[in-house]
Structure formats: structure tokens, C-alpha cells
Design a protein around this nucleic acid. Sequence first.
RNA 1: GUGCCUGUAGCUCAGCUGGAUAGAGCAACGGACUUCUAAUCCGUAGGUCAGGGGUUCGAAUCCCUUCAGGCACGCCA
Length: 564
Amino acid sequence: MTNLIENIKVTISNLIVQALSKAMEKGELPEFQIPDVFIEIPREKGHGDFSTNIAMQLTKLLRMPPQKIADSVINNINTEGTYIKRVEKAGPGFINFYLDNQWLYEGLKIIKNEDRDYGRINIGKGQKVMVEFVSANPTGPLHMGNARGGALGDCIAGVLEAAGYDVTREFYINDAGNQIEKFGASLEARYIQLLKGENAVEFPEDGYHGEDIIEHARAYIALYGDSLLNEDSQTRRKKLAEYAVQKNISDIKKVLEDYGIVYDVWFSEKSLYESGELEQTLKYLKDNGYTEEKEGALWFRSPDTEDEKEAVLVRNNGIPTYFASDIAYHRNKFQKRGFDWVINLWGADHHGHVARMKAAVKALGIDPDRLDIVLFQLVRLYRNGEIVRMSKRTGKAISLADLLEEVGRDAARFFFNMKASGSHLDFDLDLAVKQTNENPVFYVQYAHARICSIIRLLESEGVKVPEVNETDLTLLKEQEELDLIKKLVEYPEEIKISAQTLEPSRLTRYVIDVASSFHSFYNACRVKGAEEDLMKARLLLVDCTRIVIRNVLNLLKISAPERM
RNA sequence: GUGCCUGUAGCUCAGCUGGAUAGAGCAACGGACUUCUAAUCCGUAGGUCAGGGGUUCGAAUCCCUUCAGGCACGCCA
């Protein structure tokens, strides 16, 4: 639960504030309100371990050249009792801090001691957050959009857990409303066609044309025969839809499990109708003036009177829209179940609804900032350098199940999490299964396997990973060793930023960096065969690397193989 | 037409609450296995940050504009 980097940043930041105050007292600097001092880790090694641009930021306010301000800070800073061993002014006015390597050794101790918990922080303070993702219509199999949303949502949930939030993963089942009606009508048509011939009934214009509808009807007949022919149409549709929806949901559950996703809650849209929550929500909106009757329908009137697009809540045929149940659903999330923070993952094609949803939440009297909607761009599959739209085998759109069969869970999850959600994603099916250095999944997993191999080998020779207190970590001073430790020490900070930005792709890139630093270390430094104390220190470093890679992969639910 | 997203090395992408010579992986080229897994490493080369204006001591980053690609604008979800 220790974020060493953050602690050091806070320390340095405080020292600068003190130095500035002291400079003011001495009259070196005019009196002014000290702003937040941001500390960063410079990209260039030559720019120190930590750095700040505060002097340049104060230039305008103090009407003094940044060099002079930096000098004043450096002259008045007291670094006694810290890891800082040198402070320098550099470039146009940066202040760079060089630390004693001791801070890195401290970092290793933390990793070793926290082990599986290393990386966990507590910025969430146990707040209740719901991540709702995938939420696909139960009218067919999951597609590539669901696959990306699934990986993203699950990893966002994982990151937030690591950041100290109380996370609920939820799947919203759209088992009510218009599309279920259509689904039922399509099933009914196929059912009758199968029993009485193609021309017995016309297939609905806007129905679901997929092969899977016929399969559902056929399966139903296999189980229950033609019993529904005697029922009235409404009952027939209802029974067929119930059957197929249930079947689809269980298929969806299974595929998602194969994908590594386990939900805490499967929430039924229909239940909002049955519990009366939908009705209550509409009543609330009416009573508070957020609705308008027009052309026989009930419209939502946004609390933001501006140019907000209008939307129908209840159609003129009396059937509520998806938007209406979605409002009731969010009322349920926030008010009935008391979530502090709600995150929804939507495909970018739904972006037009973000403003409307937020406005609706506001109308409910809930701060819309407590709702975050993460939009992700859609996916294009590539094979042999060409876009793939259909499965060769089935001729249908490629489903998540197909993808998992072709590339496996690890590659799928890794690839979907390599890029920021906002960027378009080209998924290279050939690359995902390649067992070469072109494929980053293997690169990272290989690093882990290599580490385990070293530990295994030494253990077979009677050398165990040593305890921290019996290891002289100060022997680790090669550049590659220090670079690797520095990388490992950044992990909690990476979790923090990923949680704040809701961008787990950052962790995927981070773990590639860790693997890279490890491989460089491996080629530069020997563990086995080094002088005993050094060997022990390196073995501990290697073990810490293992811990970090494993923890990241676990969080992303990608396997960390011990042999490859 | 209106709105949103994207445009950075040959390819795929980081960087985008303004800051130090614009980073990484892959591909290309040249090297490294008698020693812990070469699924690895080291090095070289590669850029008008889509174009043009502006704000600033300073812009890939902020503002305006043009161009290109994607998406959304339903009593669908």
C-alpha cells in the first residue's frame, strides 16, 4: 500500500514550498501565494531523478527570470534527512533532483514485503463504484465491439480495485422493450416457416435475419415440438423470445467467462418494469417538470435549457423507450444501490447519447460528474494485411467466441488493452498468434518465464530467494540494475494514473517496459555465477521483477506462465 | 448541414491540465549465444508532430481555420 514515488514527490514538493517561503522571508522573492508544485520524473536520465518547472511557472507571477527564481529555491532548500543528494538548475529554469540510490533499495524492500499486494493503493478509500460494460442485447452473439468493451471494462474495474475502490462489475441485460419484441416476432416467423413451410408466413421487414434465429427456432421445436402453433401469437412470441433470450444469455455468460470476465451482477431491464421503478422514475420526472407532452408522446425536457436535443420517453403507443428505462436504471444505481461513482462503457457509436444521459442524471438530482461514460472506438480486424469482416468458416460476423478460439484469451485481452480507448484499434490476427518478438504478449510472458527459470535453477542448486534483511542491496549499482529497479518502483504510480484516467492501456505499455528493462538487465548482468552476495542481491531483484510482472498480468487477467 | 473522435518515423501507437535535443515497439540495416531460456540483447538509420494562421519567454500539446478518415444526428438500442 506504499506509493514510494508519490511520497517522494510530496516530500520534494513540500521542500520547495518551504524554500520559497524562506526566500520570501529573506526578501529574495516578493510575497506571493505559492501554487501547487508539480514534480515529475524527467524522461531524460541526464535530467535527474525528479524535476520541477516551478521556477518557469512563477516567472510571470513574480516578474523575474526563471533562472533567478531557481537559484533562490536551490539556495534555500534544506534536503537534510531525505534521499536527495544533489539539486541543480538546468536548461531554461528546471530544478533537477538527484537522489541517493538508497531510495531504490527501499523500493525493492517494499515490493518484496507487499508481494501480491504490491501496487495496490488507496486513492479510492473504499468508495463504491460500478463499472457497467458489454451489456449487449441478448438477441445474438457477442461481436468485436463487445470484445473490446469487455477487455476495457474488466481492466478498468481491475485497476480501480487496485486503487482502493469497492468495485462492482455489472452487465445490463436489455431483456425488455422494442428489440425483444422484434426478436420474438422474428423467432415466431422462423418457427412457423420451419413447421409449415417457407411461404406460410412473411418474415418481418425489420426482423433479425441471422442464421442463429433459425437455429433457436429449430432447437425449440426439437425440445417442445409444434405446441406453440395452437397458442395465440402474443404468447408464442413471448415463449420463443424467453427461450432464446435465456439461451443467448447463457452463451454470453460462458464466452465472457472464457474471456476471463466474471460479473458481480446481471441486471435485468425487465426488472425495472416489474418493480415499478420505471413508472416511479417517469412520475418523478413529470412531477418535477422535466417532461413535456407532445404529439401524443412524452418527451424529456432537460434541466439545461440550452440547445439540448429532445428525446422521447414514452412513445405515442404507450411503450416506454430505452432511454426511459435507462434513466430508471441509473436512478437505481445511484439512489437505490448507493453507488458513489458509476462508469459506463459505450461504443463510440453511442456518443450522441452521453449528453442526454448526463442531463437525465442531473434531472434526477444527482451530480452528473458522478457518472463517467467511457467511449471506445470500434475495432477493425486484419488478416494478411486485409480487413476481415466475416468468418471464413461460418460466413457470419466474427464473434468473440471465434476470436478466442483463434488467438486465445491472453492475446485478445492484451491487444485490446494496448491502445487508449479513444483511438481506433486495428487488431492484427496474424500478429496475435505469432510466437516471435513481434508479438508483445509473448515478449512479456517470456520475461516472466525466464525469471521463473532462473529462480528454479538456483533453487535446484540450493540457493533460495533471500530475505530482504539478509541481502546487501547496495551491491546493485550497474546501470541496467538501477534502470530496472526504477521501473519496478513506478508501479503504484502507474496504477494511480491509470485509475484517474480510466486508461488501463497504460499498464499494458508499462509491463512491456518492465519486461524490456528486465531483458536488458538479463543480458548485461549474470545472476548465477556472480559473487555470492551480489548473486543474492540480483536474485532478489529478479524476484521483485517477477512479482511486478505477475501482478500486472494478474490484474489484466492475462496468464503469467512459469515455463515457455 | 450540425456535433463528436482521430490525424505524430515505412507500419502500429505513446506523449496532449504548454516546458529541456519529439519517444517506444515492429519492420530495415550492422553486430552479440562454450556460461542463468537468442521467444533475448546491443548499435545504426528513420520525423515539415496532416496544412495554414494565432496566443506565449516557450506549442505535438491551447485557440481559429482548411484538408483527410471514422462515427452520430429515429416515437432503434
